Amino acid sequence: MSNRPFNLNADLLLRAYRLGLFPMAESRRSRALHWLDPEARGVLPLDGFHIPRSLMKTVRSQRFAVTADVDFPATIAGCAAARLNRPETWINAEIERLFIDLFRIGFAHSIETWENGRLVGGLYGASLGGAFFGESMFSTATDASKVALVHLVARLRLSGYVLLDTQFITAHLARFGAMEIPRATYHALLAEAVGVSARFNAAPDAALLEREIEAMRRLG
């Protein structure tokens, strides 16, 4: 199903997510949005997240400074930007506007990775109850988006989330334990998750965050 983004606002977007729908545009320049509810949905189990050994070394090295909700607009702009290996994206100006509005009212969050004071990677998504809907990530430095994903999962676990929706499965996400589930199964999980009271903790205690990441490494 598709439509032009007429009078679409943050509240309507949240209603769509509650129903299992999410928007995509055909291109960065497109004005129309397509609403998707795929037969197979990608999810990343929070209790089965796998951190590859080489990535764990990067996380421990503290090569990147990692923040959350510090620069949401720059993060979504980074995800929307064209790159040599990805000349076109599905994030148009309308999606960018809607998610910045969601962020301003507390229903969207970003993880940012910095190197020498420069934003080099990150991700963003929507949040509703105990469900987090991962939208997109970007990286201009090796492993920057992967480190952001590790920190996202750690914060979600610490904050009481129960569902991380990745929408689709990629080889990149499969390395971390992402899997596909049938639409009906996803809708059942979603209905439970949105009723969970979870509060995104953008800046947890550093020692607590480090222990959570170590616990994730052992579980995975």
Rank of each mutant, 00 (worst) to 15 (best):
K57N: 14
K57A: 15
T58G: 05
V59E: 08
R60E: 14
R60S: 15
S61W: 00
S61Y: 04
Q62T: 14
Q62M: 14
Q62H: 15
R63H: 12
R63F: 10
F64L: 11
F64G: 10
A65N: 10
A65I: 12
V66D: 01
V66S: 02
V66G: 09
T67K: 04
T67A: 12
T67F: 05
A68K: 06
A68P: 06
D69R: 01
V70H: 13
V70S: 11
V70C: 10
D71H: 07
D71V: 08
F72T: 07
F72N: 10
P73W: 10
P73E: 09
A74T: 03
A74M: 04
A74V: 02
T75Y: 06
T75G: 03
I76N: 06
I76F: 05
I76T: 02
I76P: 06
I76A: 06
A77Y: 02
A77F: 02
G78Y: 07
G78A: 05
C79A: 02
C79G: 03
A80E: 11
A80P: 08
A80T: 09
A80K: 07
A81T: 12
A81D: 10
A82M: 01
A82Q: 08
A82E: 10
A82R: 08
R83F: 03
L84I: 13
N85I: 09
R86Y: 01
R86D: 07
P87V: 08
P87L: 05
E88V: 15
E88A: 10
T89M: 02
T89N: 04
T89Q: 03
T89C: 04
W90V: 06
W90D: 00
W90N: 03
I91G: 01
I91V: 02
I91C: 00
N92A: 07
N92V: 08
A93S: 15
A93K: 13
A93N: 07
E94A: 13
I95Y: 04
E96A: 06
E96P: 01
E96W: 11
R97Y: 05
L98C: 02
L98H: 00
L98K: 00
L98E: 01
I100V: 14
I100C: 13
I100K: 12
I100N: 11
D101R: 12
D101M: 10
L102G: 04
L102Q: 05
F103V: 05
F103I: 03
F103G: 07
R104E: 15
R104F: 03
R104G: 12
R104P: 00
I105E: 11
I105N: 08
I105L: 06
I105C: 13
G106V: 03
G106T: 10
F107D: 11
F107Y: 15
F107S: 14
A108F: 11
A108L: 05
A108T: 05
H109I: 00
